[in-house]
Design a protein around this nucleic acid. Structure first.
Lengths: 252, 252
DNA sequence: TATTGAACATGACGTAGATCATGGTAGATG
DNA sequence: CATCTACCATGATCTACGTCATGTTCAATA
């Protein structure tokens, strides 16, 4: 098992068969990411009540599929998922990767049906948040309402970042940006910002970044030659984070 | 004055100096787009009270700038605006065009500061919706809360569409898609789906679609040669909408 | 009316990244 | 253990689109 998984593995998430997880939002160590809001403890208790902690999702299993009836949004507890749309001519477009503490499924609210599919890239666990309950609770708890408005707004700004990346940046810049993004998201979860295992394949990376697998491979090779990072299959070690930032060309 | 503006011009929006517009959400002919929800008439009256109808914005004037303090979201009453981000190396990325009935500014909620700038492409009028009032009202009116969740979700799905377009589609497909998008958005407002004036420059189109001006020009020329549409500067007439759909390659 | 300048069109040419082809490696399965 | 199949790396070639250069049109202003 990888270092990455081992670090997560000591979490409560890995009790696949227990019906009553001892987890709740109050003691979850991801709540700083997932719920960065000043909820009163009784508020958190109320939130806990509507959240369902599901059994693990196996690798390649779907959490939901495009056009499924929309019921819930999901917070990642452990593992990683990718969201993707299937284009009209049958190809796939990866629209995002979701790490522990991050929330997915909000694109389904607009039409009461999921606008994308979500698939586990490794064994993962999620908290299911039924949206109708969330709505009701939000009218009672202004800070929760605000939190969800902010979460959705953040999703918008992140999508706009990706739009800019796809529209204006070279292959080198795109891959470097993704590596930096994963690095900072790891750091937020108190994991190493410089050493990690990529949960996704080169195909997924290329698809997400609008590049072919071959180009992604070549960029990784180039980065290694420049001593920015070392790549051993999916194991990444960032060796020169400033150099990587320079390559990403995103300022500072 | 163009056909497009003339059609809008009979609207109440064009009373630049009046302090008391006779407009309200109840009688606004855009409310089917802007508020497609079953609000009770007294609810609409409440909403009306928080909405401020501002004086027109002149062409090239900003509605807000990136990093401005976020206070409000805006509904376009007349005219057109573009939203854009300035990348770290100083270039511009157009992230969206906003037509009457559409809402912009929601990307500012996440960080209480606008994540993009908004500039009028022609003389325009907007309804300003102070967000804090909207939040308060939303806790009292579940249907309004739901509406805004849906609006934001729609913004997410549209951004994802653009991501896919940029990542997977050719120049022809991108331009054709934009023309079709403008066409359907015109139709929603009971304007012609086949004849309209583009409010934005070729530069803006290219920027939005991740293409250079030259490429956009060439695509327009190609489309004319194929008799899909006729272009006279900014005046567009779609002559073969099915042909255009085929070119866009987005299915049906 | 002449003049200036933005916005647009179009040709010639260069290039980043796609496509095609081949080979290597690591984990799954009989 | 052998075999199979994803997944990844890397070279050779091709091409869509960018870049550069030049010209046109039209609206604004002297």
């Amino acid at each position: 098992m990888s270092i990455h998984l081992a670090n997560i593995g000591d979490d409560e998430a890995y009790k696949p068969c227990a019906h009553d997880y001892q987890t709740n939002c109050g003691n979850c160590r991801l709540n700083a990411i997932c719920l960065p809001l000043a909820l009163e403890s009784e508020d958190i208790a109320q939130l806990d009540e509507i959240i369902q902690r599901s059994k693990p999702i196996q690798k390649n299993q779907h959490l939901y599929r495009e056009e499924d009836n929309f019921q819930s949004v999901y917070a990642v507890r452990s593992g990683t998922l990718k969201a993707y749309k299937t284009t009209d001519d049958g190809r796939e477009q990866v629209t995002g990767f979701y790490f522990p503490g991050e929330i997915l499924g909000m694109d389904g609210i607009a039409n009461n049906s999921h606008a994308s599919s979500a698939k586990a890239l490794e064994t993962s666990a999620v908290c299911e948040i039924p949206f109708s309950s969330l709505e009701k609770l939000s009218t009672l708890m202004p800070s929760l309402q605000r939190h969800f408005f902010q979460l959705m707004s953040r999703e918008i700004t992140e999508d706009q970042q990706l739009i800019t990346l796809l529209s204006k940046n070279s292959a080198d810049e795109r891959v470097a940006s993704l590596m930096l993004s994963i690095s900072t998201r790891n750091a937020r979860r108190k994991l190493s910002a410089t050493q990690f295992r990529l949960p996704m394949s080169r195909v997924d990376i290329g698809n997400y970044l609008g590049l072919t697998v071959e180009t992604v491979s070549r960029v990784f090779s180039r980065m290694q030659k420049m001593d920015l990072l070392s790549v051993d299959n999916k194991e990444i070690e960032i060796k020169d984070i400033q150099g990587l930032r320079d390559m990403a060309n995103l300022g500072s």
